[in-house]
Lab assay of single mutants.
Amino acid sequence: TEDARKEAKKIIDNGGSPDEAAKFIKKYGLSEDQARELVKRAL
């Protein structure tokens, strides 16, 4: 979702790792793979 993508970008912009961002956005109901893909797109 757009919200999850924004959250991921915010985490990374604040110095978080892509892994942290992926873990965080899994709470939106995404699978591990979906979360990682979304983080990649957010970069």
Rank of each mutant, 00 (worst) to 15 (best):
E2A: 10
L38W: 00
K26L: 15
G29S: 01
K10V: 07
K9M: 13
T1W: 15
K26P: 14
E20L: 08
N14I: 07
L30M: 05
A22V: 15
E32G: 01
R36T: 07
A8T: 04
L43V: 08
Q34M: 08
K23C: 14
S31M: 02
D33Q: 10
A22T: 10
G15Y: 04
I11C: 13
S17L: 06
K26R: 12
V39R: 01
I11T: 02
K27P: 00
I11S: 04
L38E: 04
V39K: 00
R5S: 09
D3C: 15
E32I: 10
E37S: 06
G15C: 09
R41V: 11
E7P: 02
A35F: 10
E20H: 04
T1E: 12
P18Q: 07
S17V: 06
K40V: 09
G16R: 05
E2P: 09
A22K: 10
R41T: 11
E7W: 11
E7L: 11
A21Q: 02
N14P: 01
K6Q: 10
K40F: 13
S17T: 14
D3A: 14
K27I: 10
D13Q: 12
I11D: 01
R5Y: 15
G29Y: 00
R36Y: 12
A42F: 14
E20V: 05
D33T: 10
K9A: 07
K6P: 03
G29T: 00
D33R: 06
L43T: 05
P18D: 08
R41W: 12
I12N: 03
R36C: 13
A42Q: 07
G15T: 04
K9Y: 04
K27F: 06
D19R: 08
K40T: 11
T1K: 10
K23V: 07
G16K: 03
L43A: 06
K23I: 12
R41K: 12
A8F: 09
E32Q: 03
K27G: 08
L30P: 01
A4C: 08
K27M: 09
R36N: 10
I25M: 08
G15H: 06
A35K: 00
K23H: 12
Q34T: 07
K26G: 09
K9I: 12
D3G: 08
V39I: 11
N14E: 10
E2N: 09
L43R: 04
G29R: 00
D13V: 07
E32D: 13
E32T: 05
K23M: 10
N14F: 09
A21W: 15
A22M: 14
R41C: 15
T1L: 15
Q34I: 07
A21S: 04
A8Y: 06
Q34W: 03
K27D: 11
K10P: 01
V39M: 04
E37I: 05
L43K: 03
A22H: 08
S31A: 04
A42M: 15
S17F: 02
L43I: 13
E7D: 12
I25K: 04
I11M: 05
L43W: 06
D33F: 07
K9S: 03
D19L: 07
Y28F: 13
D13I: 08
P18T: 07
A22D: 06
I11N: 03
I12V: 05
K9T: 05
E7K: 06
E20G: 02
D33S: 11
D33N: 08
L43D: 02
D33H: 09
R41E: 14
I12K: 02
K10M: 10
K27N: 08
K40W: 12
G15N: 03
A4R: 03
V39D: 02
K23W: 10
I25L: 15
K23N: 14
Q34S: 05
E2H: 10
A22I: 15
R5P: 02
Q34A: 09
G16N: 04
G15P: 02
E7F: 04
G16H: 07
K23L: 08
K26E: 15
S17M: 04
D19C: 13
A8N: 01
D13A: 13
S17R: 02
G16V: 05
T1M: 15
E37M: 03
Y28P: 00
E7A: 14
F24G: 13
A22F: 13
D19K: 08
K40N: 12
E37N: 06
D19I: 06
E32F: 08
I25G: 03
F24C: 15
E7I: 12
L43F: 05
F24E: 14
P18M: 12
A21G: 01
E2K: 08
S17D: 09
D3M: 14
D19H: 07
I11E: 01
L43S: 04
A4M: 13
I25H: 03
D19N: 05
F24R: 13
Q34V: 09
T1Y: 15
G16I: 06
D33K: 10
D3Y: 10
D33C: 11
A42K: 01
S31N: 10
K6M: 11
R41D: 11
F24T: 14
N14Q: 12
G16Y: 08
P18Y: 09
I12F: 06
L30A: 00
Y28C: 07
A4F: 08
G15Q: 01
L38F: 03
A22L: 15
A35P: 00
F24A: 15
K10D: 08
A21F: 15
L30Y: 09
A22W: 10
Q34H: 03
N14A: 14
K40Y: 12
A22S: 06
E20Y: 09
A21M: 14
L38K: 00
R5H: 09
A22E: 12
Q34R: 01
R36F: 10
D13W: 09
E2D: 10
L38C: 11
A4N: 01
A35H: 01
R5A: 12
V39A: 02
A21E: 08
Y28V: 03
V39L: 10
G29F: 04
K26Y: 07
R41M: 14
T1A: 12
K9D: 02
L43C: 12
K26H: 08
E37Y: 00
Y28T: 05
K10Y: 09
A21C: 15
I25P: 05
D13K: 11
A4G: 04
R41F: 07
I11H: 02
T1C: 15
G16T: 02
A22N: 11
K23Q: 14
K23T: 07
F24W: 11
K6L: 12
E7Q: 11
G16C: 15
E7M: 14
A42G: 04
K27R: 09
I11P: 03
E32M: 11
E2F: 06
K6S: 08
E2V: 11
G15E: 02
K6V: 11
I25Y: 06
A42T: 11
Y28I: 04
A4Y: 09
R36S: 07
D33W: 07
S31D: 11
P18H: 06
D33L: 08
R5N: 05
E20M: 08
K10I: 07
D19F: 07
E2M: 09
A42V: 15
Y28G: 02
R5I: 15
F24P: 06
K6W: 09
A4W: 13
G15I: 05
K26A: 12
E37C: 13
G29W: 01
L38S: 00
E2G: 08
K26Q: 15
K9P: 01
G16S: 05
A4Q: 05
K26V: 13
L38M: 09
G15A: 03
Y28D: 06
D3R: 14
S17C: 11
K9R: 13
I11V: 06
E7Y: 06
I12A: 03
L30W: 03
E20N: 04
R5L: 15
L30H: 00
E20K: 02
K26M: 15
A42L: 15
A4S: 03
K23Y: 09
P18F: 14
K40L: 12
E32W: 12
G16M: 10
S17A: 05
K9C: 12
I12S: 02
A35M: 06
I25E: 10
G29K: 03
K9L: 13
K27L: 07
G29E: 04
E37G: 00
E2L: 10
N14L: 10
I11F: 12
L38R: 00
T1Q: 12
E20R: 03
Y28E: 08
E37V: 01
S17N: 06
I25D: 08
G16P: 01
P18C: 15
G15D: 04
K9G: 04
Q34N: 01
S31T: 13
K6T: 11
D33I: 10
V39Y: 01
K9F: 06
D13F: 10
L38T: 04
D19A: 11
N14M: 12
L30I: 08
K10W: 12
A35R: 00
K10H: 09
K9W: 11
A35I: 13
E20D: 13
E7H: 07
P18G: 07
D3E: 14
K23A: 15
V39W: 00
Q34L: 09
E2S: 10
A8L: 13
K23S: 13
F24I: 15
D3W: 13
E20F: 09
E2W: 02
S17H: 07
E37Q: 07
G16W: 10
K23E: 15
A35N: 02
D13E: 13
E7S: 08
